[in-house]
């Protein structure tokens, strides 16, 4: 499932996959403020790839690999942040 990563000095990064992120900045209707895209319940979870650590290995994970399973995705401020 998850592809194992080779470790080098470059810091691996991931990011969203699939649909392009922000639409090109075109002229907007006056008075209509740009609203940051926020996910919604009942809508698809945006797919992404991210490097990570799992069972003693560095791996590359894609969210869509978990289709067919119930998935809990948790964000937190940082390692060693106490709670």
């Amino acid at each position: 499932m998850a592809e194992e990563l080779n470790v080098g000095c470059a810091r691996p990064t991931g990011g969203p996959v699939g649909e392009s992120e922000a639409p090109p900045a075109t002229e907007q209707e006056p008075g209509k403020k740009e609203v940051a895209s926020m996910v919604q319940v009942g809508k698809k979870a945006p797919d992404f790839v991210a490097p990570g650590y799992h069972n003693g290995k560095f791996v590359n994970i894609k969210l869509s690999e978990y289709l067919g399973k119930w998935t809990l995705l948790c964000f937190y401020p940082g390692d060693f942040t106490f709670v």
């Binding site: 996910v39 979870a45 289709l67 067919g68 119930w70 809990l72 995705l73 401020p77």
Partner: peptide
């Protein structure tokens, strides 16, 4: 501002749909 992620938790169903956060 803080440059970090807040404590967000998302429940995603087998179809890839967010059911709760």
């Amino acid at each position: 501002d803080a440059g970090v992620e807040t404590r967000g938790r998302f429940i995603i169903d087998p179809d890839g749909v967010i059911q709760a956060f």
